[in-house]
Design a protein around this nucleic acid. Sequence first.
DNA 1: CCCCGCAGGTATATCGATTAACCAAGCTGG
DNA 2: CCAGCTTGGTTAATCGATATACCTGCGGGG
Lengths: 349, 349
Amino acid sequence: MSGTRTTKKAGRPTIKAVAAAAGVSTAAVSQAFNDKGRLAEATRQRILEAALDLGWSPSASATALRSARTRTLALVVRRPTDVLGADPHFSELITGIEGELAPRGYGLLLHLVADVEEESALYERLAAEKRVDGAVLTDARADDPRPALLTRLGLPAVLLGAPTPTADVPVVGLGNQGAGVHEVVDYLRELGHTRIAYVAGPAELQHTRLRLAVFEETLAAAGLAPAAVRHTDFSEAAAVAATRELLAAPERPTALVYANDSMAVCGIGTAQRAGLRVPEDLSVVGYDNLPLGRWLHPRLTTVDQQVQRVGAAAARTLLARCGEDLPAARLDERPRLVVRESTGPAPHN
Amino acid sequence: MSGTRTTKKAGRPTIKAVAAAAGVSTAAVSQAFNDKGRLAEATRQRILEAALDLGWSPSASATALRSARTRTLALVVRRPTDVLGADPHFSELITGIEGELAPRGYGLLLHLVADVEEESALYERLAAEKRVDGAVLTDARADDPRPALLTRLGLPAVLLGAPTPTADVPVVGLGNQGAGVHEVVDYLRELGHTRIAYVAGPAELQHTRLRLAVFEETLAAAGLAPAAVRHTDFSEAAAVAATRELLAAPERPTALVYANDSMAVCGIGTAQRAGLRVPEDLSVVGYDNLPLGRWLHPRLTTVDQQVQRVGAAAARTLLARCGEDLPAARLDERPRLVVRESTGPAPHN
DNA sequence: CCCCGCAGGTATATCGATTAACCAAGCTGG
DNA sequence: CCAGCTTGGTTAATCGATATACCTGCGGGG
């Protein structure tokens, strides 16, 4: 019974296997991997080699248990019935985030939820189970309950949106979205447009309010008023309905500004279907600069807000809050207007 | 020093806190949560209540360490330079997967990689660190190295693609993609088209070959040959270039079939830009049924392969392989043709 | 010559949950 | 009247990695 117990377990190697292979204790292996303690250089090398050819890396769960850090961040995406607004935006965002996480060995835990209640319940669970070190909050709302919730849960977070007084959590990027809208309005004015309408997102979203305010202010500064404003839920149906209404008005707008590219595409289709030429009879502007916009006919004029960069900045900020030390990201780029073919001089009445 | 040590730790409650609150041992708490052991009903209730108002859930890392199961699956997305093909497809897929994971308390770890080497290295790391219980492999390739790799790593996996002889891992869905292409060709034939061209994806992708084969066979069965076939990397640029070439041919095709909707949209734009009317002069068919296709002008005729359902089926299969017991998903739906406005009778020469 | 200090490690408790083994009453049947 | 079963729990070992405290030679200064 006390014989040689070389019984190989089925699973992957553990720190013990590496220690045995290198002829040291498990503590030494740990020290070799974390550059702590005092090990002779030769020993360290021997250990690293042993680990390498056993294909060993420290178990994530064991390390997480011991250190109370999971090296995982959460991204929760609210996915409404209709995906029109959210999708491409999130792909870009995720790309930006992942670009910062991957090189540091962090993972991104992605969840989809239907509504805010579900989202809150999810954060409660993630915090209780200690499944993640932090979370990226998207789509800042007016009176957003999430920062307070996450603070109460003790879960580090960043919020994508414009800075507000009640900064429970750091806010990243999207700060000067107004700038994009401002440029759009100025550009349309230069083209001679005076009847400009805005197809906005849901009123409860922070950026909706922000951009709308800038839209109205910029027009006001030019002595104009919006031809009309329609709120939507970012759905295709709402975009089409809003467009139809706007085009049916007695004093038809000559330019339509949309809160995102997807809706703008719907808008162009709707206008064309109604027999209008874009941009000869109607100018259309989107927001987001989706790749697709470049290949439509006409190509979509839009605002590039570089979501990917915002995602990267958010990730860095969050990582910093999670104890990683890295140079803080400055996000100085402003959204910029991308003029293409869907906009042109205002038609002569 | 031996006084009352009621020192509350800063962090979230542990199983000890719950045990203390309920006046039992930690073992009892565990049993109450897992319906094991033999506890009096009253005790069980008392424990659950205590846990509830302390807001306690078992720590994911501790449970993972003990049980060697993380309740997390990996999805690795290869994101080439240009996102045209991949994006919306993956959003749908993720939605389908998440729909199965969420109710079972599983999480989805999302990673983006640049190429196959990076992808393989990532699987090695995920396996070594025991960070996930399994992985969903997308974009089956000819001679795909990943199934063998994952098998070697002992990581359960499912592959999205068509069944092949070397089934190292189970294969889910997308099996009868050919069916969609078959319908497309038949439909175009009925409209009188005889010069039909195909804009395919990268040749190394399994579904590219599969669909292309069906395309050619179906045409052959009707006594026809493809007007032309172009391979692309799913990028916008390649789609546009391929379209231009095809339209410049001496015997111009009257119908263009694309391997995905994004390319089809580029195709329509390119054709219109070349002065062709869609569908009067040229019929265009996509593949995927993206939401956007419905709102273009003209609305895109396409093939709906219900990626979301495939994602759900993949998740169920993978969960089953990870030890969850759930009824196996039957995936009986075939891709179906969605006829809209981008296709019409062949023009008279 | 003896003790100090340091280089180079090792032994062990710990993170939080689970579980196999065990134990104390209470009851029953022979 | 007590062996033996059942009920309702508890104790302690364990998962894998890490950190603290500790140990063991060996060289050198006093």
